[in-house]
């Protein structure tokens, strides 16, 4: 069953037609990678799914319910979370406060336990639990942003360029974490410029170019596809 169905969305920035009739789906339990160059519209698509931006046409369904007319904040309790591009942690608030806000829509009772679970996964965040998020390194901020999203107990986690600006070793660590989240039952929609990395952990992939999906296939097939290799995997 498709957990997320995106049907024929068209998004405009003023007169600029940024997303042109994009459709895709994410099935329960999958890792889906949406790859494409800078400016292809990857972030725009995620923002549209999260209802921070709106499509002029088509519809978006999450767990068989139409969600594109709902206000953005109503999606989180349904089980849809996003780790936004550039992490966007609340820099003037502590690590703990950031995690608490991740659980904003949930009853207060289990928050402490869940936070400990996040700290187990990201021990470095535990060391810095009282520090302001703005003082963390880029990698730590990425971990915090992911931990914060996990605090809402999402069914589908959307990640926007988690590798951006991180050292290769850290990128690997982050991708390992994404994989283990998936193994523990969270469906993943991953948007990446780092196509090699993104496809290596994904089940299926979609390739986006100037606002259109130009091809989609199994991740393995895409990794061996000549066009994709030339354009996104450095030959």
């Amino acid at each position: 069953m498709a957990m997320l169905e995106v049907n024929d969305i068209n998004v405009y920035y003023g007169s600029i037609h940024a997303i042109k009739g994009v459709s895709f789906e994410v099935n329960e339990g999958e890792i889906i990678s949406l790859i494409g160059a800078n400016g292809a519209g990857k972030t725009t698509i995620l923002q549209t799914v999260s209802n921070l931006l709106h499509s002029k046409t088509g519809n978006i369904k999450f767990l068989d319910e139409e969600i594109h007319h709902l206000p953005a904040h109503k999606l989180v309790p349904m089980g849809l979370a996003q780790v936004p591009e550039g992490r966007r942690v609340f820099s003037q608030m502590s690590v703990e406060e950031n995690l608490e806000l991740g659980a904003f829509t949930r009853p207060k009772a289990n928050i402490k336990e869940d936070m400990e679970e996040i700290f187990e996964r990201f021990p470095r965040l535990k060391e810095r639990r009282r520090q302001l998020a703005g003082t963390l390194s880029g990698g730590e901020q990425q971990m915090l942003a992911m931990g914060r999203a996990m605090m809402s107990k999402p069914k589908l986690l959307m990640l926007d360029e988690p590798s951006m600006g991180l050292a290769p070793l850290l990128v690997e660590e982050i991708f390992d974490i994404i994989k283990s989240l998936n193994e523990r039952g969270t469906t993943i929609l991953l948007v990446e410029q780092n196509a090699q990395m993104a496809l290596s952990i994904a089940d299926r992939g979609y390739v986006l170019e100037t606002g259109k999906i130009i091809t989609s296939a199994d991740a393995k097939t895409l990794l061996n596809d000549d066009v994709v290799r030339k354009a996104y995997l450095g030959g």
Partner: peptide
């Protein structure tokens, strides 16, 4: 308080606050 923290979140980044499920309006 939880509501107070959500206010600080909105003040810092409205978009990210919405992604936490905070009603900005």
């Amino acid at each position: 308080t939880r509501i107070g923290k959500s206010m600080r979140a909105v003040s810092e980044d409205k978009g990210a606050a919405q992604l936490m499920g905070i009603n900005v309006n």
